[in-house]
Nucleic acid binder design. Structure first.
Length: 416
RNA sequence: CGGGGCGUAGUAUAUCGGUAGUAUAUAUGUUUUGGGAACAUAAGGGCCGGGUUCGAUUCCCGGCGCCCCGACCA
């Protein structure tokens, strides 16, 4: 993509109505735009990142056998009444609205209810189980107070996976498989070293649920980390009894703030019973389906990654989710440098490598460098009179101080 | 929802009960070009409604919006 065609612009100053690092950098870079408190648009650069994260998550969900579908945001209140979760006294962050034709609908905070309802039509025999489905969907939560930039919004993108099993044993086996998938996801996203599987409150069908918490001072949760075991405990369940149960030595724990970037729950028959989702076993008995749900806040991850991986100059995207692989800078209004820069852009794009080419005229070198640092694309390729004299292009990673001259024909393998 | 703060140009800020200033961004021109260049010119602003006043962006009331702390966060 040629930067001269990109409609978004970078800003030198952060907006006065944002304090969180993620919102400041993402807005300054033109990745997102704030519409209202807790509501953000993803602009072309931001959407690329969001889609890249989505794709990583999708691949891992497919790898565990998840089948992707897409459900509506509008939800039928009747279903929620059956599980006793429509009442504002039970769930207070609903967005509810009225149909012109009469009747009330809600904007989905989550999808257990409609999905369980849907499955009553497809699950009838033990032979139909187990399986899992997932989707990427905008969730709506009427938060009392939006905060932390895109990490706690009123509308946000979430991946939600739901599993349907015959019994607890079958469920538990799948639950462990998902744990493995989640670990892979956070590793691929570049925050594996900061992200801990964390024990949190469970519910009636399991002693614990599991959250995935990424260590950051910007986090809203407090966790206690056992570095040796690679796990953590949420403050909400942090008691001596729990520590004993998990066999964790209290003296080894380290307290940290963390961002919840995922959670997995054993739902059991909490939804299948009231919504009558059951299968017939080999003996001809009706048995409620045993369920689990597994969430990942995709848009929140964008914020979490910016919070944890940026430096004082800007964002540092992990390779797997960067909006582009390389950022070509044509320095000065040198005609040859510009021509070569665009040629390089076309060549790499032709090989299927996503590159952004800063071919804008009339900008000082410093301005282009500052923009490149802010945008945080993994490789920076400088094309200038100087680099051409030295026989190529100056290539460096976002995290490196100095680059090296690379010949045109070696660029592709250098940045691969 | 309790408490606190704020609303001035695209963005960030200043001043003032009497002509609203600066930076940056934008446009044009000249010079410049390896870490956010220089000069000149131009265009661009008081959230909405009411009140007090000769006069309100400023003071008062209401609304709307935004931020922070806390509570909340299937």
């Amino acid at each position: 993509m040629l930067q001269s065609n990109l409609f978004t612009k970078t800003k030198k100053e952060a907006p006065s109505d944002e304090v969180s690092k993620n919102a400041e950098l993402l807005i300054r870079g033109g990745y997102i735009h704030k519409e209202m408190a807790g509501v953000y648009s993803f602009l072309p650069l931001g959407l690329r990142v969001l889609n890249n994260i989505t794709q990583v998550v999708r691949e891992e969900m497919n790898a565990v056998g998840g089948q992707e579908l897409h459900m509506p945001a509008l939800q039928d209140k009747n279903v929620w009444e059956k599980t006793d979760r429509w009442d504002d006294a039970k769930v207070d962050n609903w967005f509810k609205t009225n149909l012109k034709a009469g009747g009330e609908v809600g904007l989905g905070i989550t999808h257990e209810e409609p999905l369980t309802q849907l499955m009553t039509e497809y699950i009838s025999s033990y032979k139909d189980l187990p399986f899992s489905v997932y989707q990427f969907q905008n969730k709506f939560r009427n938060e009392m107070r939006a905060k932390s930039g895109i990490m706690r919004g009123r509308e946000f993108l979430m991946k939600d996976l739901y599993s349907f099993s015959k019994d607890k044993a079958e469920h538990d086996a799948f639950y462990d498989v998902v744990k493995g998938a989640y670990k892979k996801i956070y590793t691929r996203l570049g925050i594996g070293h900061l992200t801990y599987m964390t024990f949190a409150s469970g519910g009636i069908f399991a002693p614990f649920s599991h959250e995935y918490q990424t260590v950051s001072p910007a986090g809203e949760d407090t966790i206690y980390i056992d570095e040796e075991k690679g796990i953590a405990i949420n403050k909400e369940v942090y008691t001596d009894e729990v520590l004993a149960e998990l066999g964790i030595d209290k003296t080894k724990l380290k307290e940290e703030r963390a961002i919840e970037v995922g959670n997995i729950f054993t739902l059991g028959t909490r939804f299948s019973e009231p919504l009558e989702l059951a299968y017939t076993n080999a003996e001809g008995e009706k048995i409620p389906v045993f369920m689990g749900s597994y969430g990942i806040g995709v848009s929140r991850l964008v914020g979490a990654i910016v919070e944890t991986l940026s430096d004082d100059k800007g964002i540092i995207w992990p390779d797997a989710i960067a909006p582009f692989r390389a950022h070509i800078l044509a320095l000065g209004d040198n005609a040859e440098a510009h021509t070569k820069a665009v040629e390089l852009h076309d060549m790499l794009a032709g090989q299927g490598i996503d590159v952004l080419c800063d071919n804008r005229l009339g900008l000082s070198a410093g301005e282009k460098f500052a923009d490149a640092d802010l945008l945080g694309i993994p490789y920076r390729i400088v094309v200038s009179e100087r680099s051409l004299k030295e026989g190529g292009y100056e290539v460096k990673r976002r995290t490196e101080e100095k680059g090296k001259i690379v010949k045109a024909e070696e660029i592709t393998s250098f940045i691969k």
